[in-house]
Structure formats: structure tokens, C-alpha cells
Write a protein that binds this DNA or RNA. Structure first.
Length: 580
RNA sequence: GCGCUGAUGGUCUAGUGGCUAUGACUGAGGCCUUCCAAGCCUUAAACCCGGGUUCGAAUCCCGGUCGGCGCACCA
């Protein structure tokens, strides 16, 4: 079994993760999170909230998973998130229709299916595989389509990303944040893509969880006031240049900014934040790198884009987070589609006096004179400079026709105007996390098998999920040394006390103590509390550390606080009690 | 979507026309047991789905589903 199989086997067996609809044979691209998996996933999401919502102040919102057509026309997903496919009528092989004709016509991807069919017919293009006749081009859109309402209804799509729900709420959000840049908003939720052929288990899903932040910033102000927090963090960066030599480089965030490796400070801050998050939840730093998108790989509107890539044994380097400066593309696209202004008014620190040349045509006279053309003529007049306007008779050309305007109908002057601000379409910096991929990576990085000495001198193997205590689904196992009433009663009291403190504890009295330790090792429970006969005498218990298997003895009275501090890494294990 | 390949208790697996389906681990109940998967007893649990061939199909054939690999695809 390779690493992937071992991890997936454990995940299935112990209730983390499995293929959905197994009862009916399963369906590719869908996975269920079991009792431990859901808990682990939620803990990952909550740490994400801690960083993005609580620490960064990007409040979370929740928008529908179904979107209307306009939204995805504006975002480009209706037109661009699909591929025209051509199937061979003989052998059944499917091809990208636009690829087939790209040698004949340059703008192949801009053609309609009918135009594509015509070109294929005209140039007598046949199946590259068997030479058979090609069928008509059909659109395969990666979005799940549905109808809203009964009958013919209106088209709806399951969202392919959570981002659009935040862009379309720009005006309300801007008001909420009292129209001051920068501000950000986040959303954790499901997105859907009808993948043609999803494989690789949880790495490519048809329904998946995204955690996205949309941060709206001033295009002229891409520094970050808190950059000092991360300046000295060392990251593995695989820049465009580094990719030419194939060697990722380690450097501090400060170096990356100063050497213009990352486009700007604000983006650098977001990359550092992602690095911080991934390591905090337990991604191994040596299996993490940030790879810059190559020029041709980046969306045309993006200034810079970096993927957090995580090493997984079977899949290699896998994209788990994308962090991009998307400029004003999304807001402009929705502004155009909706005919609404998606911008904020940015007040200057000090009002500026601007000298301005103003032309004032006398519309009361211009109107009757030129009738329907009056507006166009006036617009043309605005474009003229002082010299042209000083003529006896001023002429402008509108729709190829010359109009002569007597100078007395026009006045002009240079005025000084006070301008206190300007309208700005913010740029968007977007970190976009694929939670399911991160979830799997976390399990794989935590997965360990190690030899342990056993009684009969034979070496045994134990499986340990070395999850960070902060993300481990079960936080404490409470185990009476034996299943006797005198031990089980105080043990159950401890479970109750821990529950009241918000600690998820499990109770287990079946089989030997060793077996129960192993069971908990396998699901990553970081601490085990054992109640023995000494407990009855002196009110103390032992706490066992999962990774070292060492134990300390500590008092029951302060147990829930001791464990809470251990779980949240406020104290060291050796200081949690008297070492045994 | 194409080609190759596989699918047996919860997990891993033996069996390849005669089945009442092998074994291990795990689970449950009990005995024993004073800290790392010990032992003993009891017990639960499976042939991916649909068709065909055959007296008889888990086994052979066809189709589907799911997994793996290669190709294509991967905002």
C-alpha cells in the first residue's frame, strides 16, 4: 500500500472520510466527511476564521450556492468556463473542438459551435486518432445548471466558486465598512464543478469546500501597515524566474518584496498569512512551497498570482491555495453587466485645487439651432481648446458633417475648482483555499507508523496520526485503567467536567489500556487521561502524551484547565504535572 | 470521454464453473488483567449492480457503476 492508500484506508475505517453514496455503488467526485472528519474539518475552518475573520477583520458572509445567469455571464463562467467538445462518430474519442481548428483560425475559442462545425466541414477535419467523421461541437460547461422556479423558469447555476457572491454584494459591503478602503469579506462554503473526469479522490471533487477572502484595496496603495508581523518569516518561493532553473528558493518576506519577486507588499502579506495558517494547522514546512503563476498561466487581468502547493506522496505538488491580485476586473465586469457603479469615493487627505478649463455653450440657443444634434455638438465643443474657441466662428464635425457655431453662443474660462476626492474602483486581492485538499494533506502529513518495543521483545508497529492538538477531532481520551465501577465512576465525572469546559473527550473502558491508547493514537487524540487506583487515594490522574507516550501525574481539580492549556499549546507537556 | 486493469465481511485478503465462501485484523459481550494492540470463551459481519450462457455463476460473457494506471480534460 502506498501512503495514499494507507491514509484513505484509515480515513474510511475510523470515520474521517469516504466516497459518497457507497450504498448505491458510489459516484465519482463526491465524498462524505464522517464523524471525525467533519470535526477535523470544522476545526481547520475555525482556525481559518480565527486568522481571517477575527485577526484580519474580514467579516464572514453567506450567499446562495445557486446563482442566477447574469452573475456568471458577468464573471465569464457562462462563456469561458466551458469547452466545446467534438466527438468522433467512429471511435468515440472526444476532442476540444477549438484545439482541432486552432491551426486554421486564430480566434478559435471565440467562435460559436455552429461556426466551429462549419470550419470543420469546410476544411475536412477528421478524427486525429482514427480518421473518422467528427460529430457536431457541443458545449460542455463545467457548471451544474438548473432551473429556478417551475416551468421554463430562469436559468440558475450551482456556483463554481464562492467569490462571486461577495463581488455582487460589493455596494452593501462597502456601506457596512463605511466606504473606507481597504476592507475585506470572507465566505466558507460549498462550490460545484461538473468535472469531466474527476479522479484522485478528494483532490478533485465535483462538490467541494472553499474558504475565500475578497479584499478590496486602493489601487494606488498596495502597501500593508502590518507587514512587520511577517517580514522575517522564511518561505519557500518558486518564482517565475526560479521555475526556469527548477530550484525554489528560501527567503524572507522582506527579501521577496525588496527584490520585486512578489508584485507588492499587500500581496506578500497575504502569502505570508497563508503560510502562517497552513503551518499552524500542521502542514509540514518542508512540504510546502509558494509557486508563482507563469505569465501565460495567469488570467489576463491578474497582476500576480501565487499558489500554495503542498507535497503529497501520490500526487506530487498540489495547488491548495491561490492568492491573486485580480485588479478591478471582477467589479468592472459586474458594473458593466448591472449598469451600476461599483466603486467608492475616496476622499483626499487635503482637498486639491484643480485648474480646469470650462466650456459653457448656451444651450438655450444651441438647442433650437441644431435640434437633435445639439447635444452632440455641445459635446464636441467641450473637447476644444482655448485657441479654437477664440475664433469668430467655431466649427465642429459631428457624424461627418460640419457645424458652424457663432462665438457669442459660447463662453469659456479657466476656473479653479476644489476637488475633495475621487471615485476609485478597488482592486481585489483574493486568497482562495481548497479546504478538502488541505484536509487530506493534513492527514497525510500527520500519518506516521513507528516501531515500538513491546513486552516479548518483539517489535510492534503503531500507527499515529500526529495531528496538531488544536485540530485533532477528539481532544482527550478518558480511560479507567480497568472497567471496574470504582474507576469508571470518577472517569465519567472527568468526561463531564471536560465537556463543560468545551473539550471534546471520549470515554473508553473496553479491553486493555494499551489497546485503548493505540486506538486513540490512530485517530490523533493528543492526550489520554488514565484513572487508576492511586486516583482514589490522592485525587490525581496521569496524562499521556500521544507523540512521546510519556506520562505526567497531575491533580484532578485543575485537570480541565491543564488540558485546555495543553491543547492550545499554552504550556509544555513536561510542565503539566509530575513526570513519571 | 477513450484504452488497459481491478472490485469478496468494517479493513486487508483466499478461492477462478459444484459453496454450506478462507483467513487475519477490527467490532460487540464475557472471563482475566494495577499503564502501551497479551491470553481465553462467545458472537456479529461479505461475493459491486443489471442482463446473458449453463442443470448449476462469486467464478465465464455483455452492459453499467466505482477504484487504479495511461491518453484527453483540469476555471
Amino acid at each position: 500500500m502506498d501512503m495514499y492508500e494507507q491514509v484513505i484506508e484509515l480515513a474510511k475505517r475510523r470515520g474521517f472520510l469516504w466516497n459518497s453514496f457507497e450504498l448505491y455503488g458510489g459516484t465519482a467526485g463526491f465524498y462524505d466527511y464522517g464523524p471525525l472528519g467533519s470535526t477535523l474539518k470544522r476545526r481547520i475552518e475555525n482556525i481559518w476564521r480565527q486568522l481571517y475573520v477575527i485577526e484580519e477583520g474580514f467579516m464572514e458572509i453567506e450567499t446562495p450556492t445557486i446563482g442566477i445567469e447574469e452573475v456568471f455571464v458577468a464573471s465569464g463562467h457562462v462563456g469561458g468556463f466551458s469547452d466545446p467538445l467534438c466527438e468522433c462518430t467512429e471511435c468515440g474519442e472526444a476532442y476540444r473542438a477549438d484545439h482541432l481548428i486552432s491551426g486554421i483560425i486564430e480566434t478559435a475559442d471565440a467562435l460559436s459551435n455552429e461556426e466551429v462545425d462549419k470550419i470543420i466541414l469546410e476544411h475536412n477535419i477528421t478524427c486525429p486518432e482514427c480518421g473518422g467523421k467528427l460529430g457536431n461541437a457541443t458545449e460542455f460547461n463545467l457548471m451544474f445548471q438548473t432551473k429556478i422556479g417551475p416551468g421554463s423558469g430562469r436559468n440558475g447555476y450551482l456556483r463554481p466558486e464562492t467569490a462571486q457572491g461577495m463581488f455582487v454584494n460589493f455596494q452593501r459591503l462597502a456601506k457596512f465598512y463605511r466606504e473606507k478602503l481597504p476592507f475585506g469579506t470572507t465566505q466558507i462554503g460549498k462550490s460545484y464543478r461538473n468535472e469531466i473526469s474527476p479522479r484522485q479522490g478528494v483532490i478533485r471533487l465535483r462538490e467541494f469546500t472553499q474558504a475565500e477572502a475578497e479584499i478590496f484595496i486602493d489601487p494606488s496603495e498596495k502597501t500593508h501597515p502590518e507587514i512587520a508581523r511577517f517580514e522575517n518569516d522564511v518561505l519557500t518561493l518558486y518564482s517565475q524566474d526560479a521555475q526556469k532553473t527548477g530550484k525554489p528558493e528560501s527567503m524572507t518576506i522582506r527579501e521577496a518584496i525588496d527584490n520585486n519577486i512578489i508584485a507588492h507588499e499587500f500581496l506578500a502579506y497575504q502569502i505570508a498569512l497563508a503560510n502562517n495558517f497552513l503551518q499552524r494547522i500542521g502542514i509540514s514546512p518542508d512540504k510546502l512551497r509558494f509557486r508563482q503563476h507563469l505569465k501565460d498561466e495567469m488570467a489576463h487581468y491578474a497582476i500576480d498570482c501565487w499558489d500554495a502547493e503542498i507535497w503529497m506522496e501520490r500526487f506530487g505538488w498540489v495547488e491548495t491555495v491561490g492568492i491573486a491580485d485580480r485588479t478591478d476586473y471582477d467589479l468592472m465586469a459586474h458594473a458593466k453587466m448591472s449598469q451600476e457603479e461599483l466603486a467608492i469615493y475616496k476622499e483626499y487627505d487635503h482637498p486639491r485645487m484643480i485648474r480646469k478649463f470650462v466650456v459653457k455653450p448656451d444651450m438655450a440657443k444651441l438647442g433650437p439651432l441644431f435640434r437633435k444634434k445639439a447635444k452632440a455638438v455641445a459635446d464636441e465643443l467641450q473637447k476644444l481648446d482655448e485657441e479654437s474657441l477664440s475664433q469668430e466662428e467655431i466649427s465642429v464635425i459631428v457624424e461627418g458633417e460640419e457645424y458652424k457655431i457663432p462665438s457669442e453662443l459660447i463662453t469659456f474660462e479657466e476656473v479653479e475648482e476644489k476637488v475633495s476626492g475621487e471615485t476609485v474602483v478597488p482592486h481585489v486581492v483574493e486568497p482562495s483555499y481548497g479546504i478538502d485538499r488541505i484536509f487530506y494533506a493534513l492527514m497525510e502529513h500527520a500519518f506516521n507508523t513507528e516501531k515500538v518495543a513491546s513486552d516479548d521483545a518483539e517489535e510492534e508497529e503503531r500507527t499515529v496520526l500526529k495531528l496538531k492538538s488544536e485540530v485533532a477531532p477528539i481532544q482527550v481520551a478518558v480511560l479507567p485503567l480497568m472497567g471496574k465501577t470504582e474507576l469508571s465512576t470518577p472517569a465519567k465525572e472527568i468526561v463531564r467536567k471536560l465537556a463543560n469546559r468545551g473539550i471534546l473527550a471520549s470515554y473508553d473502558e473496553s479491553g486493555t489500556i494499551g489497546r485503548r491508547y493505540r486506538r486513540n493514537d490512530e485517530i490523533g487524540t493528543p492526550y489520554a487521561v488514565t484513572i487508576d487506583y492511586d486516583t482514589l487515594k490522592d485525587n490525581t490522574v496521569t496524562i499521556r502524551d500521544r507523540d512521546t507516550m510519556k506520562q505526567v501525574r497531575t491533580s484532578i481539580d485543575t485537570l480541565e484547565n491543564t488540558l485546555f492549556e495543553l491543547i492550545h499549546e499554552k504550556i509544555r507537556f513536561e510542565d503539566a504535572g509530575v513526570p513519571l
